[in-house]
Amino acid sequence: MQIYLPIAEVSVNMFVILGLGGMVGMLSGIFGVGGGFLMTPILIMIGIPPAVAVATEANQIVASSFSGVLAHFKRKTVDIKMGLILMVGGLVGATLGVQIFKYLKSIGQVELLVTLSYVIFLGLVGGMMFIESLNAIRRAGKPGALPKKKKHSWMHGLPFKTRFRTSGLYISVIPPIVIGIAVGILAAIMGVGGGFIMVPAMIYMLGMPTKVVVGTSLFQIIFVTAYTTLSHATQNFTVDAILALLLILGGVIGAQIGTRVGVKLKAEQLRILLAGMVLIMCAKLALDLLLMPSELFSIGAGGH
């Protein structure tokens, strides 16, 4: 059934959008990522204007993350204190990111820089996680393997130390705030929640336990994407309510299924699957830059 989107001004098949929402929502529930890094490029591929895709996707992530985080709250796998600190950084970062986005747009290269940052970050994060998970699975297979000791790095010398009970950490608030800002900037530029960067950063840089990471990441993503949605709605008028509703309906259901599937998977399996997905998306976007496009011209809205 076709449905006309009032803001995007295109007609789409309702069931395609519902299905996409469900698929990405499920990934969101399993991995604790918003799924924007998959959904935003897919929406653009099916003909939604990029500006609308980015803004509406942010709105969908609010719903799927909220649905997912409720399940995590029940299992007490959300580090609220850590989430709030990351959120403060995230909001600051998102504000900066929107300004950077505007600047890139004014020099006419926003599309290239968005794609490049996708390729670089998806490649780095995916590659790192893949190798790490492979090693972890190999180690686990050998008898007498010892769990890695927590390293005492330079991070432990920083001031403003505080205790994160849920994560079992006693670290400075500076690293989470810096990570929040960095992810917030990237999230605003790339039009995603930033979970795919946040999750590995929490595991590898802050040393948080994997089970807590997923819920905490979702918790933080809700606030950052709600803020992004509001910015887009008031500044660019690019949030499409009907597209969002369809994506949300599919997404929340998918997220519920995903959260239950996620519990049954082992941490290493979870990580290697996510790494694979991130790498596939990275390869797709890299090919777009490297191969000659079938149409060299593109139409942008309006003049200067």
């Binding site: 803001i7 709105n59 609010v62 719903a63 909220f66 649905s67 709605a233 008031t234 008028f237 309510a241």
Partner: peptide
């Protein structure tokens, strides 16, 4: 919806977020 998004952008944005949160809670 189109007119709301242009004339009452803040309300429209807040409404979008509210719908998202309600849908997330409902599904859960």
């Amino acid at each position: 919806l189109y007119n709301l998004s242009r004339e009452y952008a803040l309300l429209y944005g807040l409404l979008s977020i509210f719908v998202a949160l309600a849908a997330g809670y409902g599904a859960s």
